[in-house]
Nucleic acid binder design. Structure first.
Lengths: 131, 131
DNA sequence: CTGCTAATGATAATGCATTATCATTAAAGA
DNA sequence: TCTTTAATGATAATGCATTATCATTAGCAG
């Protein structure tokens, strides 16, 4: 289960996740890593994602109704933004916080998840060009 | 697809959703509605949930990594709180809002989702008793 | 009350992401 | 370089929520 050998596939997957700077789907990891190691298999992607997660190197990001994405673990509290057009997910370093005071008596807030949806910079620029 | 007959099953499912005052899983709808119509089948639950949704009477609530829940559609903007212990989901009428100003240049926020996790009143009271 | 047919109940089929299998390949220590 | 065995690639199997199927039941219009 724990990764013991530094294979080309492992390095490619880790590199891809590091350089993307955004959470990636297993399929996206496969596409991107295939550019480095063309024989890359989906099974290998899943195996390495599992290993990287067990080693606390990456963490999963799950948006409602979507498959898990994976990002390099950073220990800064953050949330996510998804573009409705290209469907890419970006990290957002904002947090309003202070939700406890809105809950009814007797309820305790221990954690929270905030997801923003809209249009990313790239898709916005794309549209401007088209018109 | 559209519901044309008011069956006992349909009424039971609608009643259960109305009285729960919180989003229910298909399985929870089955359990609760079975108390009213004991022969209720899971297929009937799914069929009616689909019909109610098509008629804009209910809406689905999807938490990350979980199966859809269904609640009577109310047109007030709200979010959800899930108890980590009993896993029930509650409606929360709070919204910090004003997320746009935290996004980098070029990004537009069109919608958002906020989910709070913690301990509900009932589970909190339960613990006090035990100790 | 009757007839028509939508809806139901029971269960098999589907879709699909993820995992298991197994023969083959290639890290990496000696 | 040789050996050991973890890791890979290809693909079959799994798990599980949801949907389809079809014979039977029951709304409801006339």
């Amino acid at each position: 289960m724990t990764i013991e050998r530094k294979t080309r596939q492992y390095e490619a997957i880790r590199t891809v996740l590091t350089e993307a700077k955004r959470p990636l789907l297993a399929q996206e990891v496969l596409s991107l890593a295939s550019a480095i190691v063309p024989t890359m298999s989906l099974a290998t992607v899943y195996r390495n994602l599992k290993g990287l997660q067990a080693n606390n190197i990456i963490t999963s990001v799950i948006l409602p109704g979507q498959n898990p994405r994976y990002e390099i673990k950073n220990h800064i509290h953050h949330h996510h933004f998804q573009c409705r057009y290209c469907e890419q997910v970006f990290e957002v370093n904002l947090c309003p916080g202070g939700f406890e005071k809105f809950m009814p008596e007797g309820f305790t807030v221990e954690d929270h998840e905030l997801i923003l949806y809209g249009e990313c910079k790239e898709c916005s620029a794309q549209k401007s060009k088209e018109s």
